[in-house]
Design a protein around this nucleic acid. Structure first.
Length: 147
RNA sequence: ACCGCAGGUCGCCUUAUCGCCUCGAGCUUGUUUCGAGGAGGAAAGUCCGGACACCAUAGGGAAGCAUAGCGGCUAACGGCCGUCGGUCCCGAAUUCGUUUCGGGAUUAGGACAAGUGCAACAGAAAGGAUGUACAGGUAAUGCUGUAGUGAAAUCAUGUAAACUCUAUGCGGUGAAAUGCCACGUAAACCUGCGCUCGAGGGUUCCCGCCCGAGCAGGAGGGUAGGCAGAUGGAGCGUUUCGGCAACGGAACGCCUAGAUAAAUGAUAGGGCCCCGAUGUUAAAAAUCGGUGGACAGAAUCCGGCUUAUAGACCUGCUUUUUUU
RNA sequence: GGGUCAUUAACUCAGUUGGUUCAGAGUGUCACGUCGACAACGUGGAAGUCACUGGUUCGAAUCCAGUAUGACCCA
C-alpha cells in the first residue's frame, strides 16, 4: 500500500506531461503519403537535406489537410525483408514521436519522404537524433523564409 | 547414464507506457470512448498439382511439354503409402567357389526383338568387317574353347537424364483474372490493311465452328481512385471405427490475420535459456558482462516438394561403461 | 504476383546444340631479346576444381535435377 502511492503519482505526472506537450502523437493512415503521383513530383521538385544515416525529400504543398510522410529503405542495402521492415518501423516511430516539431509552423504543410542510407541496422537513439535534427533544420529554414 | 543416427513436436515468456490495422457496440456523430482479434513452419524459392474467374459451357488433327516396375491413397499431382527388382553397407549361417537368411540406406526402374545416330584410348575386330597365341575338332573353314583389349566382343553388343517408339495426361490466360462505381480526356490527327468478294479476333499451326467493323503502328492527351473478388475452408482439435500404411468414415467441440506506398510495432524493466569470465580439488550455488536469443514477414486460397533454421523436448534403434 | 536468361584465366569473351581427340583467343601480367634508356615490336612462360552440390554415363565445361549470385521483361 505504501509503495503504490509514489508509483501512482509518477504515472499521473507522466500523463500530465504527455497531455501538455504532445497534443497528438498519433500517426494514422491519413498522414501517410500514398499517391504515386505526388511522390514522383516530390522526387522531381523537392528539396533534400541529409544527416547520416537519413536523407529527407520535402516539398511544401498547399491543398492538403495534414503533413504527409513516407519512409523508404532501399533493397540494395538490406536484402532481408525482415530487416528492411524493421528499419522502416523504427523510422516511422521516430517520426511519430517528433512530428510535433513541424506543427509549430502554422499555415505551411509538407509532403516528405525519409530515406535510410545506412548499410547496417541502426540503434533507435541514433535514428531519433538524426530525425530531430532534420526536422529542426526544415523548421528553421521555413520560418526564415516566412520572415 | 552418455554418445551417435532416424522420426516427430515446440520454436522465448511477462509487466508498464506510447502507437498501428480490422471488426463489433455506445453516443456528445468525431482525425472520439469501450470491447474483441491481429504472421510462419517454412509466410521463402516459385519446382509441381488443384480450386476459382474469363476466353465457344472448349470440337478434330499436328506440334510441344510432362510422367514411366506393380498396386493403392487423393479434388489432383512429378506428392505420399505399400510392395517387387537393381546397387551399396552391416550381421549370421555356409560345402569358403560363393550362396542363403535377416536388418538398414538408396534408386527418373517402359522399349535398343521398329528405325536412325554415337561407341575416345586400348584391341585383330566396336556391328556387315577381321583374325593373334595355345588347345581341341573337321573333308575343309574362326568351326569350338581359353587367353588378351575394353564399359561392351556374335550374345537380338552397349547407350533412350541420344533422336525416337509405346502408354497415359495436358485447351489458353492468371487476382495486374473478372464485374461494378466514380473522375477525366481527343468518338480528334498521321500512315498501312479492311468493311459481307471478310481486316481482325477466340494467346503455336491447320481444319471446323463462332464473333463481325474495325485492326496494327506513330506522335500526343487523360487517368493511375473506390467497392466486390477477399478470407468458413478438400478448415482445425479430441474420441472412436475400418485399413499393414498413406488415408477414409462417424460423433462432439471450435471460429482462427485480411493489409493494399502495404497493419501486427517502439522504448524501458523483470524472468527463462545460451555463451564468456570470476569462483571451487571437482561440481553446484552465487556474482559480473553480452547492440547474445536461430531462419525468417502474409498479399486470392488450398495440397505437396525444395531450401534456411540458435536452442529445447519426446519416441525408437545401436555402441560403450557401471550396478543388480 | 507472373515470366525469361546468364555464370569459363585478373578483365572481355569463344567452345556447350551434336559427349572422349579439348579447356582456347584478345587485353593485362612475368621473363628474355632489341635500345645508351623508354615506348612500340619480337620470342617464350605462368595463371582455371569451367559458380556450387548431387545424379546419369566407361567418360560431363557440355546431359538431368537442386542450390547460390546477378541481369532483364510483363500494368
Amino acid at each position: 500500500m505504501k509503495g503504490k502511492s509514489p508509483q501512482r503519482f509518477l504515472k499521473l505526472l507522466r500523463f500530465f506531461f504527455l497531455y501538455i506537450y504532445t497534443v497528438s502523437q498519433k500517426f494514422p493512415k491519413k498522414e501517410k503519403l500514398k499517391s504515386s503521383k505526388t511522390i514522383e513530383n516530390l522526387f522531381l521538385e523537392g528539396n533534400t537535406h541529409s544527416k547520416f544515416p537519413l536523407k529527407i525529400f520535402f516539398l511544401p504543398e498547399d491543398n492538403i489537410q495534414t503533413n504527409l510522410a513516407a519512409f523508404a529503405v532501399p533493397k540494395r542495402n538490406f536484402k532481408s525483408a525482415v530487416d528492411r521492415h524493421r528499419v522502416k518501423r523504427q523510422l516511422r516511430e521516430a517520426y511519430r514521436c517528433n512530428k510535433q516539431l513541424l506543427e509549430e509552423i502554422h499555415g505551411k504543410k509538407f509532403v516528405m519522404l525519409f530515406l535510410y542510407l545506412g548499410k547496417v541496422k541502426p540503434q533507435y537513439s541514433e535514428l531519433e537524433k538524426a530525425m530531430v535534427k532534420l526536422l529542426k533544420k526544415i523548421k528553421d529554414e521555413m520560418s526564415h523564409d516566412k520572415d
